[in-house]
Amino acid sequence: MCNDLSHILVFKTNIRTVRNKKRVQRLLENREGLLAFNVDQQDSDCVLRVVAATITAKEVKTLLQEAGFECAELD
């Protein structure tokens, strides 16, 4: 784990089902500026965690919301 954690973005979402998770995967996979992501469906907030290279929190939020998901950055 590197010492600079500024590239980690955390969102509260409603990605509750396996189907929804797959949709988000398709949405974010191979996205430029995004190194890795995962959704913690065991958590009540269905937290989406993004390791960003250049993508911003606003861009991730817009992507998810345009696809019909709730997405609010946690800080």
Binding site: L5, I8, V10, N38, D40, D43, S44, V47, L74, D75
Partner: peptide, 25 residues
């Protein structure tokens, strides 16, 4: 055990927890 409960017990935000760990597993 849950990330939410842990964040609450530590008096930190859930987001902080996810900065250090990917998820509960």
């Amino acid at each position: 055990f849950s990330m939410n409960k842990l964040a609450g017990a530590c008096n930190i935000s859930v987001a902080t927890l996810y900065i250090y760990y990917k998820d509960k597993d």
